[in-house]
């Protein structure tokens, strides 16, 4: 049972990590907790189902289309909701983020209804539900393996974008000194848009994965996943991308083990407990910046 929970937790953790990087990157560049990030994740699931059912597109095309749409939604969210408040007190943007989260949830309810619906399983290859590997009693399904592989690949790509490309370096520069970055000719708003696009497209993949994994989607699904991914980001150290990845995985495993050994009723509570513990004992998180900087 331990091995099985570990496998389930790892799968879940990879998904949390994909969402968490979106929170942490946006926080890094504009010091805003983008509460509407969970809704982008939710919209992704609905958009994917819509693309499959309405246009009859194959799943792998749908994933790319959804990533693109969510990237666009993320960028719009920033341009219309957050950008006008860039010079305002942070609380104003934070409240706007909560407002946008509620707005998008309700928008989804109006468009798709509030009842949970299953994912279009017919669109998926049947082998996904069959075991791929087994260790003793524990098995890893093809779906889990696919989620794990896709998420790992995306994290590697993300890592390379952030650390090896010009725009990624600009993102990091911006998060370390905005005026300094602007003075180098970095178009700050464009880099912020890029950050939203990147985070939202990662969240989009996670949204589709969750909808498939649990075989359900509903307008408030972004809330729970969002809180957990946010907890993961805080655990890893908000603003740190590797931290968000590690935080997501730890949280996923903790949740699976907690649900398995204590009670599945505590599943969602574990994220809150972790977040509170981090805030009390190590507010900067696992990889949070606590380095001394010379002025």
């Amino acid at each position: 049972m331990f091995e099985q929970q570990l496998i389930n937790g790892l799968t879940l953790g990879m998904i949390y990590a994909l969402i968490a990087v979106g929170y942490t990157m946006v926080y890094g560049v504009i010091q805003l907790i983008n509460f509407a990030h969970g809704e982008i994740f939710m919209l992704s699931a609905f958009l994917a189902v819509t693309f499959i059912t309405v246009f009859g597109l194959p799943i792998y095309v749908v994933i790319f289309m959804t990533m693109g749409c969510c990237a666009l939604i993320g960028v719009m969210l920033d341009i219309f909701a957050y950008r006008p408040l860039r010079q305002s007190p942070r609380l104003a943007a934070l409240i706007t983020a909560i407002g946008m989260s509620i707005f998008l949830q309700n928008l989804a309810m109006i468009i798709w209804g509030s009842r949970p619906r299953p994912f279009v399983q017919e669109a998926l290859p049947a082998f996904l539900r069959t075991p791929a590997l087994s260790f003793g009693e524990a098995t890893v399904s093809w779906l889990q393996l696919t989620i794990f592989g896709t998420a790992s690949l995306l994290m590697i790509i993300l890592f390379l974008i952030i650390n090896k490309t010009r725009v990624g370096t600009a993102m990091r520069a911006l998060s370390q000194n905005r005026t300094g970055a602007a003075l180098m000719g970095i178009n700050v708003n464009r880099v912020i848009s890029f950050t939203f696009a990147l985070g939202s497209s990662m969240g989009a993949v996670a949204g589709i994965m969750v909808a498939i994994y649990y075989n359900t989607l509903y307008p408030t699904m972004g809330y729970v996943a969002g809180v957990k991914a946010f907890a993961a980001a805080v655990l890893g150290g908000i603003g740190s991308v590797p931290g968000a990845m590690i935080g997501g995985i730890i949280l996923g495993i903790a949740e699976a083990l907690g649900a398995g050994y204590i009670s599945s009723l505590y599943r969602d509570g574990i994220a809150y407990a972790v977040m509170i513990a981090v805030i009390i004992f190590r507010p900067s998180g696992i990889l949070g910046k606590s380095t001394v900087e010379k002025v």
């Binding site: 370096t169 520069a173 300094g180």
Partner: peptide
């Protein structure tokens, strides 16, 4: 026109080399 601002505003967690590259951003 490029400015070297008061307080330097270098990027503390970028390497020296990456800092230089940011100067050539455009």
């Amino acid at each position: 026109i490029t400015q070297v601002p008061e307080g330097r505003m270098i990027f503390p967690r970028l390497t020296v080399y990456e800092n230089l590259l940011m100067g050539a951003y455009l």
